[in-house]
Design a protein around this nucleic acid. Structure first.
Lengths: 126, 126
DNA sequence: TCTATAGTTAGCTCCATGGCTAACCAATCC
DNA sequence: GGATTGGTTAGCCATGGAGCTAACTATAGA
C-alpha cells in the first residue's frame, strides 16, 4: 500500500468538478452509455470524455464497450474509499472533542476544587 | 460570475491535495499555528500558506491571528457538507442496488425454486 | 531600541485541467 | 456499399494551481 493517498487524490479531484459529480449522481440511478450521459451537458464530446476518463482513473466509474456503445456504471465500492476517509477524520475529531471536554472538565474541577466539592466527574462514553 | 465554484467544488478540491488532507488530519487533533503546521512539510512558507488559504476558502478551516501568530482550527461543521454528499449518493446508490437485487432475486425465483436470501448491500452504519 | 521571529505580499515559473475543433475509426443501418 | 451514428485521437489554447525566491510588515523579546 505504498501510495494509497494518490488514489484519494484522484477521487477527490474527480469529485471537485460539478460535471463529474453530476455524472456520478446520474450513475447512482443506473448505468448509461456515454452518449446518454453526455446529453444533458452543453459540451463537446471529447471534452466530456475527459470527464469520464477522470472518473475511470479515479476508480469511481467502470466502463465497457460493446459494439460501438460504451456503457458506464459506478464501481461497486466507488465512494467507499473517500467516505471512509471522512469517517476516520470524524472519529479523530470527535475523540479530540471528547478529550477537550475532559480537559475542560478537569480544569473546572481543579479550579472549583477550592470552592466546591466536586461531583464525581466522570464522563466518557457516548 | 454568477456561478463561482460551489462550496462542494472547493471542499473536494481542497481535499484532493495530500498536503491539505494532512493539514486537516493534523487539525483534527487540535488547533495549531501556521508555523507548527508547516513544520513537517519540506516546503517554502508562502507555498504552504496557499494551502492554508485554500482550506480557508473552502470553509474547512478557520484561522485567527493574534499577535504575530495565526492559529488554525477545523471549522466545527467542516467535513459535514462533503460527508453529507456521500451519504446522499450512497442512499440513492443503495436504493438502486436494492432494486437491482430485487430484480435479480425475482429472476432467480422465476428461474428456479427460490432458495437463499442474500443481503450483500449493507456496509457500516453510522 | 535593535533583532529575531512569524507571516504576508509580489511576482515568477511549470504543468495539469478543462474546454474547443477537426479528423478519424468502427459498428449499424438502408 | 455508402451513409449515419457513437466514440476516439490529436492537437491547440487559456486558465489556474503548486511550487519557488525575494523583499516586506509587524510583533516579541533581549
Amino acid at each position: 500500500m505504498a501510495n494509497q493517498s494518490s488514489r484519494l487524490d484522484r477521487i477527490f479531484a474527480a469529485l471537485a468538478d460539478p460535471t463529474r459529480r453530476a455524472i456520478v449522481m446520474r450513475l447512482c440511478a443506473g448505468e448509461a452509455s456515454v452518449g446518454e450521459l453526455a446529453d444533458p451537458f452543453d459540451m463537446a464530446l471529447p471534452s466530456f470524455m475527459k470527464h469520464i476518463h477522470a472518473l475511470e482513473t479515479s476508480g469511481l466509474v467502470l466502463s465497457e464497450k460493446s459494439g460501438r456503445v460504451r456503457t458506464c456504471r459506478l464501481s461497486p465500492d466507488a465512494l467507499v474509499g473517500a467516505e471512509d476517509w471522512f469517517q476516520q477524520q470524524r472519529a479523530v475529531w470527535e475523540a479530540r472533542l471528547d478529550r477537550f471536554e475532559d480537559y475542560v472538565m478537569k480544569l473546572k474541577k481543579e479550579r472549583a476544587g477550592a470552592k466546591r466539592p466536586s461531583r464525581t466527574t466522570k464522563r466518557k462514553g457516548s
